[in-house]
Amino acid sequence: MVESKKIILYVDDEQINLRVFQLMFKNQFHIITALSAAEAVEKLEEHPSINFVISDYRMPEINGFEFIRNVQPTYKEKNFFMLSGFDQPEEVNKAIELGMIKKYFTKPMNKVEILSALEN
């Protein structure tokens, strides 16, 4: 039955956020985490079966938006989301319009909102 769970790659530069996210959704999803954009790229290559990618916006080196912009064309079958403490930035609006990003969630996260978005 474990195999039937969909897989989420969650990217955030704070370890505690990654851990909390795992605890929150461990019953519904299989969670893979990455602490940076670079690590996330490796994880995407390692696990071709990842269904959803959720990334923080503000991260050192490569931010969440640049990360998604770089990898999304390669993984068009996957759904990309953002989760950030910022108000939705202008560039993200455009990415949503283009379909690159499915939805932008704000921190603190709302479990119901995230679940309903992923289930669609």
Binding site: I16, K107, P108
Partner: peptide, 12 residues
């Protein structure tokens, strides 16, 4: 942003 992050993991 800085406050939202701790709020986020409290929420989680």
């Amino acid at each position: 942003h800085e406050i939202n992050n701790p709020l986020n993991f409290i929420q989680g």
